[in-house]
Design a binder for these strands. Structure first.
Length: 817
RNA sequence: GCCCGGGUGGUGAAAUUGGUAGACACAAGGGACUUAAAAUCCCUCGGAGGCAACUCCGUGCCGGUUCGAGUCCGGCCCCGGGCACCA
């Protein structure tokens, strides 16, 4: 008898057993259907926070549940090790990023082990390992050869004082976080991956992804933003180049009264050379960040260029304006403006006194007052010459045709999605395997020279990447002509590493190529768990990358993640926990005080997975109390557990009730674990079961056997959440074999049968009483009983019954007047 | 600004397909045990009235559909996430 629950002893013993018997080592040849269970790997920021604890506990619950259900489960863990915080730490403390990262990994790995997560550590890697990132370079060069990679100018946040590129996060109120200098938009040559070439597939496949939440699929749909429309060409007076704009509303073309271009647009730059005021305005537009949210909330401003564009159908001249809300990155960096039928154009036109022309009228009684607002609904064309009277679809077609006939436009499908800029002007990332030669231009690093290793013995002087001044890295002979050339110093966006790590886990030691056939055994990931903050970028890039690998012949399926569990955030002072917000929410002292099982149980009990919540420690005492109660309950029934099997024919009524509770708990837990992915209610179901066991007073050997059945169920059901205590209790209950190798029990359906059910009786929708009826009673019998039930009959006096509704096993509603 | 979520007792939440609102816990209050404390156990616990039986009100706000709405529809308010260089 172990009178006192000692979590530290129990947890150490269980972890030692799992470790020694390699309980969580996954093999392709093991029995059972494969189940790849993955929680998003962490950035090694230093210490785990409660957001990590939640994510990995949820992953581990799914892992352990599926093991009980007989699957061959693989749950790996690794490190998303490149990124900005390591550089910031290096700048601040002088610790090289490689050292800082390695230390953090060691510490966080220890914390994960302390939490008892059933990971297959034999597959662990960090993305900063050259063995890992060399394959990223390899694939990049394959894509380069295929034309899936290209180079073009793109704007970045430039800190003019620190002479460096800033991440959006490093821009605070339009100023550099270290220098405090106003940030400028600056163009730079950058590498891009053609994700837009896969836009259609990325969009269409969402239809069939039943295992993903509707909200995430919607976010991705909106992000990709497919819009069918028309490209319209405008001839520019005095220029040979045409100005091309995209519109989803060609039906409003006759209402265009001006054209607007981005401040970075060549026409704007050309015009600015003639006009100092315009040059000032263009310069002013550069005093802004690259963040779309900032652009969207900016006060709309513009200035005429003095140039005019010829309307392709009317031949009228339209003034060309520079506007601060037109983005060079999106489309052609120019838009046609129809103030009558676009709210933003309307506001701009009102501000600058540009003509507002109505060319659409409502088809049914809607208000249309262009002096108050733009009319943006679809309607009937007016003031549009030969197109008058047409509705949206016909107007769209007719104007598209007219443009096509004049070779001044064409139908196109545009996407909001932009190509993926993968260059970063940073040190702590995967080097881009390119060499710049004065004679040969851009030259890929030969396969034999991969990986291009990132030098790790670096000193940060100031805030710029050490690579740009490091001759040993920089100076390299051109692979084509042998002349002295310059190595690319940009590194990859860290989303590159996280876009394929889950395939590498399947064959972490593959020597060539990046994954081997084991990837097609484990992939796709069956259950992917992670924070909702990754709903768009990471998940979209990963889907894209998976298709790139498929088209390279490395993978045979189309989508990387079958089922997706999007976690709500663990908030701290109402905001998401992050590295930059500090290390609050460190679980270490909680682990020391309460043990892993209590922390895990409290976390699971706190809220359903998809809900965000503010973490507080109040729940820990309750979780510990529950585990202690469960422990004591088993201790007090140890003899009962060796009792004979249950004689179903001779059960007392209370024993029958307890058996039903046991069966109900197993049914509910199975549903919550397997279908609903809601684990807080599993905890409460087990709490209810243990409460029922406590209240039950066994009077016979048969009763004892019923208690034994209930206790075994309680321990097994809670085991994915609190695995250590469950393991210990399982052993104490005289069961052979470790709990992690057990099978989920068959449910005794006969225990669930109820002869008598309680129904609620409502009168006009208000609860007035309750009745007990035989489960198989006729409707007429139930209704008759309901009408005469205590407290019900008085609400029926002097009333006429209009309707009687019976919901089987639930309620009766009598409608009277 | 745009896209996606969320809002239920003092607190975390439950209510799975439109069918008993508040399960299960935390906190609080009262009691038992104890020399005392801790631990444990028992009771009360949305608001108002009655101080019982019971009744009325109540799921962010306003309106609608329905025999019946926390759940569905329309409009609003507030909070969180994402917006392409935080990961």
């Amino acid at each position: 008898m172990n009178a006192v629950y000692d979590p530290h002893k129990v947890e150490q013993e269980a972890q030692r057993y799992w470790d020694e018997s390699e309980s969580f080592r996954a093999s392709e040849s093991a029995e059972g259907e494969k189940y790849y269970c993955l929680a998003m790997f962490p950035y090694p920021s230093g210490r785990l926070h409660m957001g990590h604890v939640r994510c990995y506990t949820l992953g581990d619950v799914i892992n352990r549940y599926h093991r009980l259900k007989g699957f061959n489960v693989m749950q790996p863990m690794g490190w998303d090790a490149f990124g900005l915080p390591a550089e910031n730490a290096a700048i601040k403390n002088g610790i090289p990023p490689a050292v800082w990262t390695k230390d953090n990994i060691a510490y966080m790995r220890g914390q994960m082990q302390r939490l008892g997560f059933g990971f297959d550590w034999s597959r662990e890697f960090a993305t900063c390992d050259p063995d890992y990132y060399r394959w990223e370079q390899w694939l990049f060069l394959k894509l380069f050869a295929k034309g899936m990679v290209y180079r073009k100018n793109a704007v970045v946040n430039w800190d003019p004082v620190d002479q460096t590129v800033l991440a959006n996060e490093q821009v605070v109120d339009g100023r550099g976080w270290r220098s405090g200098a106003p940030v400028e938009r600056r163009e730079m040559a950058q590498w891009f991956l053609k994700i837009t070439a896969y836009a259609e597939e990325l969009l269409d496949e969402l239809e069939d992804m039943d295992g993903w939440p509707e909200s995430v699929k919607n976010m991705q749909r909106n992000w990709i933003g497919r819009s069918p429309g028309v490209e319209v060409d405008f001839l520019v007076e005095g220029h040979s180049e045409r100005l091309t704009v995209f519109t989803t509303r060609p039906d409003t073309l006759m209402g265009a009264t001006y054209v607007a271009v981005a401040a970075e647009h060549p026409l704007a730059l050309a015009a600015a050379q003639q006009d100092p005021n315009l040059a000032d305005f263009v310069a002013q537009c550069k005093q802004a960040t690259t963040a779309e949210a900032d652009m969207a909330t900016l006060e709309k401003a513009g200035m005429p260029t003095g140039l005019n564009a010829r309307h392709p159908l009317t031949g009228n001249l339209l003034p060309i304006w520079v506007a601060n809300f037109v983005l060079m990155e999106y489309g052609s960096g120019a838009v046609m403006s129809v103030p009558g039928h676009d709210q933003r154009d309307w506001e701009f036109a009102r501000k600058y006194g540009i003509e507002i022309r109505q060319v659409i009228e409502p088809t049914q009684g809607n208000d249309c007052d262009l002096s108050a607002a733009a009319y943006t609904e679809r309607g009937r064309l007016v003031n549009s010459g030969e197109f008058d009277g047409l509705r949206f679809d016909d107007g769209f077609d007719a104007i598209a045709k007219a443009l096509e006939a004049k070779e001044m436009g064409r139908r196109v499908t545009n996407y909001r999605l932009r190509d993926w800029g993968v260059s970063r002007q940073r040190y702590w990332g995967c080097p881009i395997p390119i060499i710049h030669c004065e004679d040969c231009g851009v030259v890929p690093v030969p396969d034999a020279d991969l990986p291009v290793e990132l030098p790790t013995d670096v000193k940060f002087e100031g805030v710029r990447s050490p690579l740009v001044t490091m001759d040993s890295f920089l100076r390299v002979p051109c692979p084509e002509c042998g002349a002295l050339a310059r190595r690319e110093t940009d590194t990859f966006d860290t989303f590159m590493e996280s876009s394929w790590y889950y395939t590498r886990f399947a064959s972490p030691d593959a020597q060539s190529p990046m994954v081997d056939q084991r990837a097609n055994y484990w992939a796709p990931v069956d259950h992917y768990v992670g924070g909702v903050e990754h709903a768009i970028l990471h998940l979209l890039y990963a889907r894209f990358y998976y298709k790139l690998m498929r088209d390279e012949g490395l993978l045979s399926s189309n989508e990387p993640f079958k089922r997706l569990l999007m976690l709500g955030m663990v908030l701290q002072d109402g905001k998401k926990m992050s590295k930059s917000a500090g290390d609050a929410g460190d679980p270490q002292k909680l682990l020391d005080k309460y043990g892993a099982d209590t922390v895990r149980t409290a976390m699971m009990f706190a809220a359903p997975p998809d809900q965000s919540f503010e973490w507080n420690e109040a729940g820990l005492e309750g979780a510990l109390r529950f585990l202690k109660r469960l422990w004591m309950l088993v201790q007090s029934h140890l003899e009962a557990l060796s009792a004979d099997s249950i004689d179903k024919a001779r059960l007392s009524e209370s024993a029958q009730r307890l058996r039903r509770k046991t069966a109900e708990t197993l049914t509910k837990a199975d549903d919550d674990y397997g279908r609903r992915w809601q684990f807080n209610t599993v905890v409460s179901a087990v709490m209810e079961l243990t409460n029922a066991i406590s209240k039950f007073a066994p009077r016979s050997a048969n009763d004892q056997a019923v208690v034994g059945e209930a206790l075994r169920a309680a321990v097994l059901v809670i085991s994915p959440i609190a695995p250590h205590i469950a393991d210990a209790l399982w052993g104490q209950m005289g069961e052979t074999g470790s709990l992690v190798d057990q099978a989920w029990p068959e449910i005794d359906e006969s225990a669930l049968i109820q002869n008598v059910v309680e129904l609620v009786v409502q009168v006009n929708g208000k609860v007035r009483g309750k009745i007990e009826v035989a489960a198989d009673a006729e409707k007429s019998v139930v209704l008759a009983q309901a009408r005469v039930a205590e407290n019900v009959s008085r609400f029926l006096q002097d009333k006429t019954v209009r309707k009687e509704i019976l919901v089987p096993n639930k309620l009766v509603n009598i409608v009277v007047s």
